[in-house]
Design a protein around this nucleic acid. Sequence first.
DNA 1: GCAACAGAAATCGGATACGATTTAAAGAAT
DNA 2: ATTCTTTAAATCGTATCCGATTTCTGTTGC
Lengths: 241, 241
Amino acid sequence: MKIGYDMNAELDREKKPLSDGQILREITDAIIEGRLSPGDKLGQDELGKVFGVSKTRIRPILHRLNEQKIVVIEPMRGAFVARPSVEEARAVNAARQIIEEGVIRAATRVARVKDLKALREIVAEEHNARLTRNGGQAHRLTGEFHCELARITGNEVVADVVRDLVSRDNLVVALYQRPNAAACSLDGHAALIDRIAEGNEDAAAHAMRHHLQDVMDSLNLGPKTGPSKSLATAFAHLRQD
Amino acid sequence: MKIGYDMNAELDREKKPLSDGQILREITDAIIEGRLSPGDKLGQDELGKVFGVSKTRIRPILHRLNEQKIVVIEPMRGAFVARPSVEEARAVNAARQIIEEGVIRAATRVARVKDLKALREIVAEEHNARLTRNGGQAHRLTGEFHCELARITGNEVVADVVRDLVSRDNLVVALYQRPNAAACSLDGHAALIDRIAEGNEDAAAHAMRHHLQDVMDSLNLGPKTGPSKSLATAFAHLRQD
DNA sequence: GCAACAGAAATCGGATACGATTTAAAGAAT
DNA sequence: ATTCTTTAAATCGTATCCGATTTCTGTTGC
């Protein structure tokens, strides 16, 4: 399809110069929510058309996603939605077991009552989301629990690292979808809070490792290839006709 | 700060299209080795001239450094060498204490004889570098020890996280380094190896926390402002006349 | 009929060009 | 003389353009 300058006439009607962060979020959401499947091509020009910007702004965004391991870039070929291997999925989970052990140990040492309260609040929200069949929200809150745990350490750097890992793990979980299994995370989180409340550092660390391992075991690590969808349909909600 | 005027004359004669990774390495090295001081401006055009490329390739590199917190980017103003505050320095060190505790615990569980050998090898190199008054090399190896420790876990993701943290900490140390103090890291590393060899996970974790704390305490956290140098002199070794 | 090859179309990576914004400097007024 | 205003210079962010590489397609040969 040939594009001309007359198209801008329609676009400026609803001024939409999306920021880089918004475009990034749109793409990541599209991937995590399954509107884009692993292996799908992310053409620079095509994405530029979708978001109404030039590929000049698309390219660095794709590189950022590449650093987050959400997309892969093959030189002179283009960008594609990452197809995380089973080994990679295991590696991310193992990394979380290693790093979040240190995190929960530190959190256990410094946790105050209000911190436990915040954690319990998140678990309660998780419970509600689960009851209302709000899978997406529940999924998000599951990650939020671990981020909040990192926040308890009072260390912004640690929180950032954990957030990145959780985000990456979210992608893995979304791709290796689990039909129903997710309740285990609720019990796991409650157990973690109890161990922290007890001030038992070793027990908390042990519980964390097992909790993450449970999440890993609940995944379906068989070969999974979803159908490829077009970029236009994946971002259909952005269109204005 | 004035720049050199004579540097761009003979650059077009050379045939050296450096890769993005090489340019990235050059800039980070220049910052960590002190050839560029915190607050120095990193002009896109100027850097492009230095490396013989267009600013198109410089910009994403600066953004990557920005994500690593080595440079800061102020919108519509430009990129500058990061000037980490004392709080930020403490935060990075604290993050390492938290995360590397998990790392050394995992490493202690799985370490084999060859792994210990590799660690001792690095310590030996550190010792040599210290003897030959090779401060830069010693400094680099100090970080390499921790990266190797992360590598023992067999987890690439963990290794990447640790590498980022070490790189960031290297910048802090380079900025707040006291003239002489650095020998403590040698003894600290040796002690860490001993604890790992003993298989004593708790002792290893304890030693790691104290080792990192020692490094922190050895810094001079008073206000420190180094002299600004020009980009031309900072990358003078790249010139070929 | 199928495989191999050649040319065309498409797309990526990079350089140049241009408007927008900030910074620096020069000039006028009190 | 100092300060405020205005104007010029520099630099950033983005769009457009161009060569290089890949992929697709149509043809040829066996």
